[in-house]
Design a protein around this nucleic acid. Structure first.
Length: 323
RNA sequence: CGCGGGGUAGAGCAGUUUGGCAGCUCGUCUGGCUCAUAACCAGGAGGUCGCAGGUUCAAAUCCUGCCCCCGCAA
Protein backbone atom coordinates (compact mmCIF):
# COMPACT_ATOMS: atom_id res chain seq x y z
CA UNK A 1 0.00 0.00 0.00
CA UNK A 2 1.41 3.38 -0.98
CA UNK A 3 1.62 6.40 1.20
CA UNK A 4 -0.96 8.19 -0.92
CA UNK A 5 -3.40 5.34 -0.44
CA UNK A 6 -2.82 5.39 3.29
CA UNK A 7 -3.48 9.12 3.38
CA UNK A 8 -6.92 8.38 2.00
CA UNK A 9 -7.90 6.52 5.16
CA UNK A 10 -11.05 8.24 6.36
CA UNK A 11 -11.23 8.98 10.05
CA UNK A 12 -13.81 9.81 12.67
CA UNK A 13 -12.18 11.43 15.69
CA UNK A 14 -13.57 11.18 19.21
CA UNK A 15 -12.14 13.31 22.01
CA UNK A 16 -12.74 16.25 24.29
CA UNK A 17 -9.92 18.14 26.08
CA UNK A 18 -6.82 20.00 24.91
CA UNK A 19 -4.66 16.94 24.44
CA UNK A 20 -7.30 15.51 22.09
CA UNK A 21 -7.54 18.69 20.08
CA UNK A 22 -3.76 18.68 19.55
CA UNK A 23 -3.89 15.10 18.25
CA UNK A 24 -6.80 16.03 16.01
CA UNK A 25 -4.92 19.01 14.68
CA UNK A 26 -1.90 16.92 13.73
CA UNK A 27 -4.14 14.46 11.86
CA UNK A 28 -5.74 17.36 10.06
CA UNK A 29 -2.36 18.86 9.18
CA UNK A 30 -1.30 15.54 7.67
CA UNK A 31 -4.34 15.80 5.42
CA UNK A 32 -6.13 12.73 6.60
CA UNK A 33 -9.78 13.04 5.57
CA UNK A 34 -11.61 13.62 8.84
CA UNK A 35 -15.25 12.86 8.24
CA UNK A 36 -16.48 13.94 11.62
CA UNK A 37 -15.64 14.74 15.21
CA UNK A 38 -17.45 13.42 18.25
CA UNK A 39 -17.10 15.35 21.49
CA UNK A 40 -18.87 15.92 24.80
CA UNK A 41 -21.98 18.12 24.81
CA UNK A 42 -21.58 21.77 25.76
CA UNK A 43 -22.88 22.84 29.09
CA UNK A 44 -23.77 26.19 30.48
CA UNK A 45 -21.84 27.70 33.34
CA UNK A 46 -24.52 29.24 35.51
CA UNK A 47 -23.99 32.66 36.97
CA UNK A 48 -22.00 33.61 33.93
CA UNK A 49 -24.71 34.61 31.54
CA UNK A 50 -23.09 33.93 28.23
CA UNK A 51 -20.25 31.61 29.08
CA UNK A 52 -20.64 28.11 27.83
CA UNK A 53 -18.22 25.30 28.09
CA UNK A 54 -17.21 24.24 24.59
CA UNK A 55 -14.62 21.48 24.34
CA UNK A 56 -11.27 22.31 22.73
CA UNK A 57 -11.96 19.59 20.17
CA UNK A 58 -15.21 21.25 19.16
CA UNK A 59 -13.54 24.63 18.85
CA UNK A 60 -10.93 23.19 16.51
CA UNK A 61 -13.53 21.33 14.47
CA UNK A 62 -15.54 24.52 14.04
CA UNK A 63 -12.42 26.28 12.84
CA UNK A 64 -11.63 23.55 10.33
CA UNK A 65 -15.21 23.05 9.21
CA UNK A 66 -15.34 19.44 10.31
CA UNK A 67 -18.83 18.06 11.05
CA UNK A 68 -19.47 17.76 14.80
CA UNK A 69 -21.62 15.34 16.73
CA UNK A 70 -22.23 15.76 20.45
CA UNK A 71 -24.31 12.83 21.62
CA UNK A 72 -25.69 12.67 25.16
CA UNK A 73 -25.62 8.91 24.79
CA UNK A 74 -23.93 6.64 22.30
CA UNK A 75 -27.31 5.28 21.20
CA UNK A 76 -28.84 4.06 17.93
CA UNK A 77 -29.00 7.57 16.51
CA UNK A 78 -25.30 7.91 17.02
CA UNK A 79 -24.68 4.51 15.46
CA UNK A 80 -26.74 5.51 12.46
CA UNK A 81 -24.77 8.74 12.08
CA UNK A 82 -21.51 6.83 12.22
CA UNK A 83 -22.56 4.09 9.80
CA UNK A 84 -23.69 6.74 7.42
CA UNK A 85 -20.22 8.28 7.41
CA UNK A 86 -18.65 4.81 7.25
CA UNK A 87 -15.12 5.80 8.27
CA UNK A 88 -12.16 3.50 7.72
CA UNK A 89 -10.88 4.20 11.20
CA UNK A 90 -11.99 5.69 14.53
CA UNK A 91 -9.41 7.45 16.67
CA UNK A 92 -10.27 8.10 20.30
CA UNK A 93 -8.30 10.40 22.59
CA UNK A 94 -9.63 11.27 26.04
CA UNK A 95 -13.23 11.12 24.96
CA UNK A 96 -14.76 10.67 28.39
CA UNK A 97 -17.33 7.98 27.72
CA UNK A 98 -17.14 4.24 27.39
CA UNK A 99 -17.77 3.24 23.80
CA UNK A 100 -19.70 0.02 23.12
CA UNK A 101 -18.01 -2.74 21.20
CA UNK A 102 -20.39 -2.74 18.24
CA UNK A 103 -19.52 0.88 17.56
CA UNK A 104 -15.80 0.23 17.79
CA UNK A 105 -16.08 -2.45 15.15
CA UNK A 106 -17.93 -0.45 12.53
CA UNK A 107 -14.80 0.83 10.71
CA UNK A 108 -12.82 -1.49 8.49
CA UNK A 109 -9.63 -0.78 10.42
CA UNK A 110 -11.40 -0.75 13.78
CA UNK A 111 -10.83 1.84 16.49
CA UNK A 112 -7.59 3.08 17.98
CA UNK A 113 -7.20 4.72 21.36
CA UNK A 114 -4.47 7.19 22.26
CA UNK A 115 -3.97 6.84 26.00
CA UNK A 116 -1.68 9.03 28.13
CA UNK A 117 0.20 6.35 30.05
CA UNK A 118 2.47 3.40 29.50
CA UNK A 119 -0.16 0.69 29.61
CA UNK A 120 -0.90 -1.52 31.43
CA UNK A 121 0.00 1.10 34.03
CA UNK A 122 -2.57 3.80 34.82
CA UNK A 123 -5.56 2.49 32.98
CA UNK A 124 -8.62 4.68 33.36
CA UNK A 125 -9.80 8.23 33.53
CA UNK A 126 -6.93 10.30 34.93
CA UNK A 127 -3.55 8.93 33.85
CA UNK A 128 -1.78 12.28 33.68
CA UNK A 129 -2.88 13.42 37.13
CA UNK A 130 -2.08 10.06 38.68
CA UNK A 131 1.38 9.88 37.17
CA UNK A 132 2.13 13.21 38.87
CA UNK A 133 0.30 12.51 42.12
CA UNK A 134 2.16 9.22 42.48
CA UNK A 135 5.47 10.97 41.98
CA UNK A 136 6.39 8.86 38.96
CA UNK A 137 9.34 10.02 36.91
CA UNK A 138 8.29 8.39 33.68
CA UNK A 139 5.03 8.02 31.82
CA UNK A 140 4.10 8.06 28.17
CA UNK A 141 1.66 7.44 25.38
CA UNK A 142 0.16 4.13 24.35
CA UNK A 143 -1.76 3.51 21.17
CA UNK A 144 -3.93 0.46 21.31
CA UNK A 145 -6.71 -1.34 19.61
CA UNK A 146 -9.91 -0.68 21.53
CA UNK A 147 -11.94 -3.43 23.13
CA UNK A 148 -14.86 -3.36 25.52
CA UNK A 149 -12.69 -3.02 28.63
CA UNK A 150 -11.26 0.18 30.01
CA UNK A 151 -7.87 0.62 28.35
CA UNK A 152 -7.36 -3.13 28.09
CA UNK A 153 -6.92 -3.47 24.34
CA UNK A 154 -3.93 -4.85 22.48
CA UNK A 155 -1.01 -2.45 22.18
CA UNK A 156 0.20 -1.15 18.83
CA UNK A 157 2.85 1.33 19.91
CA UNK A 158 4.25 3.19 22.89
CA UNK A 159 6.46 6.15 23.59
CA UNK A 160 7.82 7.05 26.99
CA UNK A 161 8.22 10.54 28.42
CA UNK A 162 10.44 11.62 31.31
CA UNK A 163 8.54 13.54 33.98
CA UNK A 164 10.58 16.50 35.14
CA UNK A 165 10.32 17.26 38.88
CA UNK A 166 9.02 20.69 37.92
CA UNK A 167 6.35 19.35 35.60
CA UNK A 168 2.74 19.98 36.52
CA UNK A 169 -0.50 18.99 34.85
CA UNK A 170 -0.21 21.72 32.25
CA UNK A 171 3.39 21.14 31.20
CA UNK A 172 3.13 17.36 31.26
CA UNK A 173 -0.06 17.43 29.20
CA UNK A 174 1.81 19.54 26.68
CA UNK A 175 4.67 17.06 26.43
CA UNK A 176 2.29 14.12 26.15
CA UNK A 177 0.27 15.87 23.47
CA UNK A 178 3.35 16.34 21.34
CA UNK A 179 4.35 12.72 21.82
CA UNK A 180 0.81 11.55 21.11
CA UNK A 181 0.69 13.48 17.86
CA UNK A 182 3.93 12.11 16.49
CA UNK A 183 3.16 8.58 17.64
CA UNK A 184 -0.28 8.43 16.06
CA UNK A 185 1.11 9.70 12.77
CA UNK A 186 3.72 6.94 12.84
CA UNK A 187 1.32 4.25 13.96
CA UNK A 188 -1.57 4.74 11.53
CA UNK A 189 0.35 3.84 8.34
CA UNK A 190 1.89 0.66 9.72
CA UNK A 191 -1.45 -0.38 11.19
CA UNK A 192 -3.28 0.19 7.92
CA UNK A 193 -0.72 -1.62 5.78
CA UNK A 194 -0.69 -4.56 8.16
CA UNK A 195 2.96 -4.38 9.15
CA UNK A 196 2.17 -3.75 12.81
CA UNK A 197 1.16 -6.66 15.01
CA UNK A 198 -0.84 -5.91 18.17
CA UNK A 199 0.65 -7.10 21.47
CA UNK A 200 -1.47 -8.31 24.37
CA UNK A 201 -1.26 -6.33 27.60
CA UNK A 202 0.24 -8.02 30.63
CA UNK A 203 -2.64 -7.51 33.02
CA UNK A 204 -0.47 -8.50 35.99
CA UNK A 205 1.25 -5.13 35.85
CA UNK A 206 -1.99 -3.23 35.45
CA UNK A 207 -2.97 -0.30 37.66
CA UNK A 208 -6.22 1.65 37.53
CA UNK A 209 -6.86 5.31 38.12
CA UNK A 210 -10.23 6.64 39.12
CA UNK A 211 -12.07 9.74 38.02
CA UNK A 212 -10.83 12.61 40.14
CA UNK A 213 -13.20 14.14 42.64
CA UNK A 214 -13.20 17.54 44.22
CA UNK A 215 -12.45 16.00 47.59
CA UNK A 216 -9.20 14.53 46.25
CA UNK A 217 -7.78 18.04 46.50
CA UNK A 218 -8.08 18.11 50.31
CA UNK A 219 -4.66 18.14 51.96
CA UNK A 220 -3.70 15.80 54.78
CA UNK A 221 -0.92 17.50 56.68
CA UNK A 222 0.31 14.18 58.04
CA UNK A 223 1.52 13.30 54.58
CA UNK A 224 5.05 14.20 53.47
CA UNK A 225 5.67 17.58 51.89
CA UNK A 226 6.78 15.96 48.66
CA UNK A 227 3.52 13.96 48.40
CA UNK A 228 1.49 17.11 48.96
CA UNK A 229 3.54 18.89 46.33
CA UNK A 230 2.96 16.03 43.89
CA UNK A 231 -0.76 16.44 44.43
CA UNK A 232 -0.41 20.14 43.80
CA UNK A 233 1.31 19.42 40.48
CA UNK A 234 -1.30 16.86 39.50
CA UNK A 235 -4.39 18.90 40.39
CA UNK A 236 -3.09 22.22 39.12
CA UNK A 237 -5.99 22.88 36.81
CA UNK A 238 -8.71 21.06 38.71
CA UNK A 239 -9.65 20.61 41.55
CA UNK A 240 -6.59 22.36 43.01
CA UNK A 241 -5.41 21.59 46.54
CA UNK A 242 -7.00 23.08 49.61
CA UNK A 243 -7.12 22.95 53.38
CA UNK A 244 -9.24 24.50 56.11
CA UNK A 245 -8.39 27.45 58.35
CA UNK A 246 -10.29 28.51 61.44
CA UNK A 247 -10.81 32.26 61.20
CA UNK A 248 -12.93 33.87 63.96
CA UNK A 249 -14.55 30.55 64.79
CA UNK A 250 -15.36 29.93 61.15
CA UNK A 251 -13.79 27.01 59.39
CA UNK A 252 -13.01 28.37 55.94
CA UNK A 253 -11.70 26.73 52.85
CA UNK A 254 -8.23 27.92 51.90
CA UNK A 255 -6.87 27.07 48.45
CA UNK A 256 -3.13 26.85 47.97
CA UNK A 257 -2.58 28.21 44.50
CA UNK A 258 1.21 28.41 44.48
CA UNK A 259 3.53 26.48 46.77
CA UNK A 260 7.13 25.30 47.13
CA UNK A 261 8.38 22.17 48.87
CA UNK A 262 11.25 22.41 51.38
CA UNK A 263 13.03 20.10 53.75
CA UNK A 264 12.71 20.58 57.50
CA UNK A 265 15.15 22.97 59.04
CA UNK A 266 17.41 21.19 61.47
CA UNK A 267 16.04 21.19 64.97
CA UNK A 268 12.78 22.80 63.95
CA UNK A 269 9.56 20.83 63.89
CA UNK A 270 6.14 22.26 64.49
CA UNK A 271 2.73 20.65 64.92
CA UNK A 272 1.30 19.03 61.81
CA UNK A 273 -0.48 21.69 59.80
CA UNK A 274 0.94 24.57 61.85
CA UNK A 275 1.64 27.79 59.98
CA UNK A 276 4.94 29.43 60.90
CA UNK A 277 7.56 31.89 59.70
CA UNK A 278 9.97 29.72 57.80
CA UNK A 279 12.29 32.60 57.06
CA UNK A 280 12.19 36.39 56.96
CA UNK A 281 9.57 36.48 54.25
CA UNK A 282 8.54 32.89 53.76
CA UNK A 283 5.55 31.25 55.40
CA UNK A 284 5.71 27.50 55.92
CA UNK A 285 3.28 24.77 56.92
CA UNK A 286 4.56 21.74 58.80
CA UNK A 287 3.96 18.34 57.25
CA UNK A 288 4.93 14.89 58.44
CA UNK A 289 8.27 15.32 56.76
CA UNK A 290 9.31 18.60 55.23
CA UNK A 291 7.65 21.97 54.93
CA UNK A 292 5.30 23.44 52.37
CA UNK A 293 6.13 27.10 51.67
CA UNK A 294 3.03 29.09 50.79
CA UNK A 295 3.30 31.63 48.00
CA UNK A 296 -0.20 32.38 46.75
CA UNK A 297 -3.31 31.42 48.65
CA UNK A 298 -7.02 32.08 48.33
CA UNK A 299 -9.66 32.16 51.03
CA UNK A 300 -13.13 31.01 49.95
CA UNK A 301 -15.01 33.98 48.54
CA UNK A 302 -11.87 36.07 48.18
CA UNK A 303 -9.38 36.67 45.44
CA UNK A 304 -6.04 34.94 45.24
CA UNK A 305 -3.37 36.83 47.21
CA UNK A 306 0.36 36.55 47.82
CA UNK A 307 0.81 35.14 51.32
CA UNK A 308 2.59 38.24 52.62
CA UNK A 309 -0.36 40.44 51.66
CA UNK A 310 -2.65 37.92 53.30
CA UNK A 311 -0.68 38.31 56.55
CA UNK A 312 -1.24 42.09 56.54
CA UNK A 313 -4.94 41.46 56.87
CA UNK A 314 -4.84 38.24 58.89
CA UNK A 315 -1.84 38.41 61.24
CA UNK A 316 -3.28 35.54 63.30
CA UNK A 317 -2.63 33.22 60.38
CA UNK A 318 0.88 32.62 61.75
CA UNK A 319 0.64 30.07 64.52
CA UNK A 320 -2.71 28.65 63.48
CA UNK A 321 -3.23 24.99 62.65
CA UNK A 322 -4.60 24.08 59.23
CA UNK A 323 -6.97 21.14 59.11
C1' C B 1 -35.08 33.16 39.74
C1' G B 2 -29.79 27.40 42.46
C1' C B 3 -26.83 28.42 47.67
C1' G B 4 -23.23 31.58 49.96
C1' G B 5 -18.95 35.27 50.82
C1' G B 6 -17.15 39.97 49.25
C1' G B 7 -16.23 45.45 46.97
C1' U B 8 -13.36 50.76 52.67
C1' A B 9 -5.88 54.69 50.58
C1' G B 10 -1.15 51.25 45.97
C1' A B 11 -1.85 45.83 48.64
C1' G B 12 -4.25 42.76 52.48
C1' C B 13 -8.02 43.61 56.10
C1' A B 14 -11.14 45.85 60.58
C1' G B 15 -15.28 48.96 61.29
C1' U B 16 -21.79 47.72 59.43
C1' U B 17 -25.27 43.97 64.51
C1' U B 18 -26.48 49.19 68.19
C1' G B 19 -26.10 55.48 62.45
C1' G B 20 -22.12 60.07 65.55
C1' C B 21 -14.10 62.45 64.01
C1' A B 22 -12.06 57.27 58.20
C1' G B 23 -9.02 52.89 61.20
C1' C B 24 -5.02 48.55 61.39
C1' U B 25 -0.78 45.99 59.07
C1' C B 26 2.25 46.42 54.77
C1' G B 27 4.00 49.51 50.93
C1' U B 28 5.26 54.62 49.54
C1' C B 29 7.53 59.77 50.57
C1' U B 30 10.59 62.98 54.03
C1' G B 31 13.91 63.29 58.04
C1' G B 32 16.86 60.70 61.94
C1' C B 33 20.03 56.63 63.56
C1' U B 34 23.64 53.39 61.11
C1' C B 35 29.82 51.06 57.97
C1' A B 36 25.21 49.22 56.08
C1' U B 37 20.13 47.18 55.49
C1' A B 38 14.14 44.48 53.84
C1' A B 39 15.95 46.44 60.77
C1' C B 40 14.92 50.67 64.34
C1' C B 41 13.05 56.00 65.60
C1' A B 42 10.15 60.49 64.11
C1' G B 43 6.95 62.78 60.67
C1' G B 44 3.94 63.09 55.99
C1' A B 45 1.15 62.01 51.53
C1' G B 46 -2.51 59.05 49.74
C1' G B 47 -10.32 57.89 50.42
C1' U B 48 -16.49 59.82 45.81
C1' C B 49 -16.15 53.63 51.84
C1' G B 50 -18.44 49.68 44.00
C1' C B 51 -22.65 52.89 41.40
C1' A B 52 -27.52 55.40 41.75
C1' G B 53 -31.55 56.83 44.60
C1' G B 54 -34.12 57.05 49.50
C1' U B 55 -34.61 57.74 55.16
C1' U B 56 -32.11 61.06 58.83
C1' C B 57 -29.81 66.81 62.25
C1' A B 58 -26.16 63.08 60.79
C1' A B 59 -25.05 57.12 56.54
C1' A B 60 -19.17 52.99 55.20
C1' U B 61 -23.26 51.65 58.71
C1' C B 62 -30.47 51.58 57.74
C1' C B 63 -34.01 50.93 53.01
C1' U B 64 -34.57 50.18 47.37
C1' G B 65 -32.43 49.25 42.59
C1' C B 66 -28.06 48.18 39.72
C1' C B 67 -22.76 46.82 38.50
C1' C B 68 -18.45 43.89 39.48
C1' C B 69 -15.19 39.87 41.97
C1' C B 70 -15.01 35.09 44.35
C1' G B 71 -16.35 30.16 46.76
C1' C B 72 -19.99 26.05 46.47
C1' A B 73 -23.37 23.40 43.50
C1' A B 74 -24.02 21.79 38.36
Amino acid sequence: MTETEIKKTTIVFMGTPDIASIVLESLHLENYPILGVVTQPDYKLKNKDEDEYISPVKKLALEKNIPIYQPQKLDDDFKKWLKNLSPDLIIVTAFGKIIPRDILEIPKFKSLNVHASLLPKLRGASPIQNALANGMNETGITIMLMDEGIDTGDILSQKSIIIDPQDDYITLTGKLAVAASSLILKTIPSWIDGSLAPTKQDSNGATMCQLIEKSDGKINWDEDAQDIYNKFRAFRVWPGIFTFWENKNNLQKLSLNQIIVEKDKLGEKHHLGEVFKYSENEVGVQTNSGVIILEKIQLAGKNETPVNDFLNGYPDFIGSILK
